[in-house]
Design a protein around this nucleic acid. Sequence first.
DNA 1: ACCTAAGCGAGACGGTACGTCCCGTCTTCTG
DNA 2: CAGAAGACGGGACGTACCGTCTCGCTTAGGT
Lengths: 199, 199, 199, 199
Amino acid sequence: MVAGRPRSAACDRAILDAALAEYAAGGLEGMSVDAVAARAGVSKATIYRRYPSKVDLVVAAAVAIAGEHEPHPDTGTLRGDLTVALQRLRTLLSHPVVGACIRMLTVDAQHNAQLAARHREFVHERRAALRAQLGRAVERGELRTGIDAEVAMDLLVAPLFYRHMVLHTPIDDAYIDAVVDDFVARYGIAPAVGARTER
Amino acid sequence: MVAGRPRSAACDRAILDAALAEYAAGGLEGMSVDAVAARAGVSKATIYRRYPSKVDLVVAAAVAIAGEHEPHPDTGTLRGDLTVALQRLRTLLSHPVVGACIRMLTVDAQHNAQLAARHREFVHERRAALRAQLGRAVERGELRTGIDAEVAMDLLVAPLFYRHMVLHTPIDDAYIDAVVDDFVARYGIAPAVGARTER
Amino acid sequence: MVAGRPRSAACDRAILDAALAEYAAGGLEGMSVDAVAARAGVSKATIYRRYPSKVDLVVAAAVAIAGEHEPHPDTGTLRGDLTVALQRLRTLLSHPVVGACIRMLTVDAQHNAQLAARHREFVHERRAALRAQLGRAVERGELRTGIDAEVAMDLLVAPLFYRHMVLHTPIDDAYIDAVVDDFVARYGIAPAVGARTER
Amino acid sequence: MVAGRPRSAACDRAILDAALAEYAAGGLEGMSVDAVAARAGVSKATIYRRYPSKVDLVVAAAVAIAGEHEPHPDTGTLRGDLTVALQRLRTLLSHPVVGACIRMLTVDAQHNAQLAARHREFVHERRAALRAQLGRAVERGELRTGIDAEVAMDLLVAPLFYRHMVLHTPIDDAYIDAVVDDFVARYGIAPAVGARTER
DNA sequence: ACCTAAGCGAGACGGTACGTCCCGTCTTCTG
DNA sequence: CAGAAGACGGGACGTACCGTCTCGCTTAGGT
């Protein structure tokens, strides 16, 4: 029995949409909860009933987008799998709101246990998916055995995070290709040595 | 002719130290100028007389840290150079204050042009030093020619930043060795193929 | 034809009791309908179904108390009548809830026409009863004729209210005796001059 | 050494004036601190720096007016002294703000130790002055000896408080005369029996 | 015996005000 | 003059509560 009037889905939606718009317009500091409430046509209390603070609101908005992630397709080749995986990561990082939220999470997770747990959860989920892909590649004989999966994954995804968070540089297809090429050249098995490797 | 009492150097110092500590603890949004003043044992006016805004204060504090870096020593070997460079980076990231500030910058630089510019400047400076090291290695015949230095540098430093900012994992010597090994195995020339590669 | 489930008398009672208690504790401004609902173990809607506003609720609660008063007994002597009347008033003022509500009413009636009307009604009712007692005393020849009943009544009851509301002093039997003695000494006729007058 | 910028007397004044105006317009419930701030041309923080709550603000405004009380003059006769004293009390009670505050104090003093102390202080001060007047009357032979001063004072002032707080009736000169006449008739010595007594 | 109108608990909702915090500016006094 | 102390205007924050509403369940009374 879930007594009481249920939360309005329309409000849920309006709040997240408004939060995204306001955040995109002014950033965390430049936005105000009052403005979000006004834009959503919603009372401030209705927002605070859902999210205990402004940061939680923005994080929730980001999660709403990031949550729409589907399992990575199995393209059949190591290079294909990795390229798709990194392109998806790039898409996430490039999103004006999601990307910013990922940055914020790295900071806020330091001081907030709840956020830290959430953050860790996201990261673990994503890394598990990537780890599985590498496992499949080993089974297919495309990847050498005995490699340290943790370090290997770092070498794949770290450059994208680095560009996103430290360099603030856009990540194009060529960059992803270069990272994948390097990875395959280092850890791949014979047939993978192909045209793009020398690039 | 600058008549009147000169500004106190002790205040300069106290303000920057306090600003650093407060910034590390709470980021740009989480810190307050009042708290900095209190921690420094200084009046708020004394801060605003020096820095026109909170952001300027943080920028100045960051400059104070970054200014203390010495040029990397030339150990004579590629592996040695890279190991020293990454160990220094690790030291920086591990520093309770500096490390936190680096994380904060990734967020605050997004919405603040002034901080972004300063941040970019620091990064460029560091990368130029690393680029020079790689150049020396090419000249010594330890590194293949024709590699994309930008991507190569990313592969070296990105894992450390990734561990620091995303995974929040401490970075030990073994990890640095693994990253350097991978790099040398991929880009190095013959003699570098040695014992630790399979690790 | 009033189909449907009838209103619960238990709720009626619980609401009024809770409202009284909350009102006594914090007055009109200091009480909240939510608190009343919680204390009564009742839903807010159940309250608003009965009373259109917080003020109406408080008014109803006050009526519930005032309705319980019985006519003063006729003791046969002026002194007896007055002593009983004042002792009853003392009992009312001393009641932890009723007394507090009387205090609250004096404040809230100032800014709320509805409460003011209700308050006035109560007072008039009580004063009418007292006026009748004085009338009987005149007829019995215990009280001088031609006195201003309004002022006379004030002299009798005002000291008790004053102690209750201004001085916050408990009212003992001796105080009531003193007030009655003074009144009888001033307005009474010969036979009333007795032992206690000089006290 | 009272370091720092002193509080602005202009603000003090503007705040109290605005508070009085707003209070007169809408009462305690109908006024808002924001409105007071706007009317005073002052920041809300400037108000809260002085008064911890809205009620304290109104009380302070009342005190500002009531505080201007001078010692009662010695008219030379008992009747004159008492009449002046009650007229002054009437003036205080009749003031739209001061009168309301006196009512509120009876409630708030119940739950707030600080206010209770303040209230007691005021009352004691006033009663001491009145007690001194009665003492002078005894010395002059206008008042009987051996009377209970506390009860006597109650009989004098209680009717005014009663009319103010319970009856909400305006107090005219005739009422004051009646109260004084009654008091003098009851406690006075022979020569005081005069023209106005039968009124 | 069922059906139906209403009561009821729970709690979401829009709105309004509260009291707090902090920024960047200012004013005053002391060294 | 620098510096400390701190008041000031402005504006956002997060909370509390009013009176309304929307759920799903319960409960009598009328057919």
